[in-house]
Nucleic acid binder design. Structure first.
Lengths: 149, 149
DNA sequence: CCACTTATTAGAATAATCTTCAATTAATCA
DNA sequence: TGATTAATTGAAGATTATTCTAATAAGTGG
């Protein structure tokens, strides 16, 4: 077995998709070259970042989902992005935001289960600069990435 | 002016994209028919929900982003999904989760600016069943939908 | 108002891609 | 083992994206 599906999920998580120009042209009744021109412009202007797949994450071993609210050390206030940039490449992390209020950093994290999430916290989150975290576990996901589940 | 870009953003928010089979086939060195077969299977099994675009949301009038932490009324504990299902179709809402802990409902919301967000809160969030909300505004988004920005 | 530049829209032709089909190989399980 | 299902593959056909050229519309500055 070649585990092609596993490879596909990795690729589709971030890209390897493309717009359906002909289908859109029919839908909004414009010439396909017009659609093409507009899309290429949006890509060039970096309005569109990428095209990607959205999964039923339960079915690709990412069934556990949690929001991680973090407080960062006052030492790091001058540049919270230092911490964020260390996290950004981590493939379990769906989103990273620097925020107002009690929690300066909010992560959305996906893992296979709570055990794998615990490993993630120990390995990734427990680092200099983060002084307190609160995990809010998702019991049921109804919508993600603008897609109802 | 036909505002084709506007129509495209609406379509691309949820779909109208498709996998790049030939490109993937080259990348992982398999026959394109094999890739095709596996993708169709993943779609049929609902492992893949859709293919969509990810935007630089600042550039499509959705620059404001906030997490909305909600407490729901004890009356609604028996079925928190009632509330969630009312919200699910709202296009400003990126994600909806029913969660553990102090906040039973977490929304991720996008709007043009704080003014538009305020209108959203008044119109959508202020409803029977939600007894307290706390907005955590994003000051800087570093990653969203698994895509570094 | 005019000349000039830039953005947008289109048709036709080409290049590339997806999709179907039939056949082969691999995996599963009684 | 043998029967059944699932996965992989190459060749052919159907569909689609892309390029090229040109026309039109919108915006800019004199």
């Amino acid at each position: 077995m070649k585990d092609i599906k596993g490879k596909l999920t990795i690729l589709f998580r971030q890209g390897y998709c493309t717009p359906q120009i002909a289908r859109i042209a029919k839908k909004i009744k414009e010439a396909s070259t017009t659609i093409h021109y507009n899309i290429k412009k949006m890509e060039k202007d970096q309005i569109i970042k990428t095209y990607k797949a959205v999964f039923d994450y339960k079915k690709i071993d990412l069934g556990y989902c949690a929001y991680v609210l973090c407080q960062i050390s006052p030492d790091e206030y001058s540049n919270p992005e230092n911490i964020a940039n260390d996290l950004i490449k981590h493939e379990n992390i769906e989103s990273i935001d620097i925020c107002t209020g009690d929690w300066e950093l909010i992560l959305k994290v996906r893992a296979k289960d709570q055990d794998e999430y615990y490993l993630f916290v120990k390995k990734v989150i427990s680092r200099r600069g983060i002084i307190k975290i609160q995990t809010v576990s998702s019991l049921k996901q109804l919508k993600t990435e603008f897609i109802p589940l």
